[in-house]
Structures are given as C-alpha cells and as structure tokens.
C-alpha cells in the first residue's frame, strides 16, 4: 500500500466545512427548542383556587422561609405545586438504548479501520 498523501483543501472548501459544522451544531440545540420538543417542563396537576401555606403542604418553618424570600401563597403557588412527569414507554427507552449503543458501535468500528491505517503507516512504513 502506498503512503497516503493528503490532498490540499481549497480555502472555499475549508470555509464551507466550518459553516457546515456550525449550522449542524446550532440546529441540534435550537431545532428541539423551536419545535417545543425540549421536554422537562413542569406542570401543576391540581391547582389550588385559594392557596394558603397549609393547602400548599407547607409547614410553618417552610412557610416562614418562603415569606423571608418575599413570597406569598399566591406567588409561590406554581413554584411549589409544579412537578415533572417521569412516565415513559418501554419502546422509547429501548429506542434510546439502541441509538446510544449503535452510535458507539459505529464510532469504534470506523475508528478501528482508520486506526489500523495510522499504525501501519507509522510503524510499518506503509
């Protein structure tokens, strides 16, 4: 096998590569956000019509700290009652596991092919 000679990349091509990476990065962050798929939003399942510290489940010690922070039962209502929903489907969990494992298998497989070329050229002069 002949020693690999890397081609010279044109400036325009280099700029295009950088723009491509940046656009992909921004897309990975902002597309789920813009589509409202970012998850992790808390919701209040059972709102209190006339909240008091007691109806919000707060002991006197807890209520005293909220008041020290400047809250009233009304202003603390959402903060105290909002909860995450941790329900999930087995299918979604399995899909995540498959995606993660497939990703690392892809990494290791392609990396191994490339690595053998590197070692062969470095140590065997090929």
């Amino acid at each position: 096998m002949a020693r690999y000679i890397a081609p010279t990349q044109s400036k325009a091509s280099q700029i295009f590569d950088v723009i491509f990476l940046v656009v992909l990065t921004l897309g990975a962050l902002f597309v789920p956000l813009k589509m409202g798929l970012s998850g992790a939003a808390k919701t209040v399942a059972a709102p209190e019509a006339n909240p008091t510290w007691e109806s919000l489940g707060q002991t006197p010690a807890q209520a005293a700290q909220y008041e020290a922070l400047g809250y009233t039962p009304e202003s603390a209502h959402d903060l105290i009652l909002a909860r995450f929903d941790y329900s999930f489907t087995t299918g979604a969990l399995l899909a995540m596991i498959v995606v993660i494992i497939a990703y690392y298998v892809l990494m290791l497989k392609f990396s191994e092919t490339e690595y053998r070329e590197v070692i062969a050229e470095k140590f065997d002069g090929k």
Binding site: L21, L24, T25, G27, A28, V31, P32, L37, S38, G39, A40, F84, Y86, F88, A92, L93, A95, M96, V99, I100, Y103, L106, M107, F110
Partner: peptide
C-alpha cells in the same frame, strides 16, 4: 443516560443524531 432520558430525551436523541451525522 437514563436520568437524562427521563427529562430531556429529545435533546439526547437530537445530540446523538448530530454526532452520528458529523461522524
């Protein structure tokens, strides 16, 4: 990974999708 899946599964998949494409 499971903890992230519980709250931010979409971001997790979006991010791994990003890494697969750039790979």
């Amino acid at each position: 990974f499971f903890a992230v899946f519980l709250g931010y599964g979409t971001q997790l998949i979006a991010m791994i999708g990003f890494y697969i494409v750039v790979s």
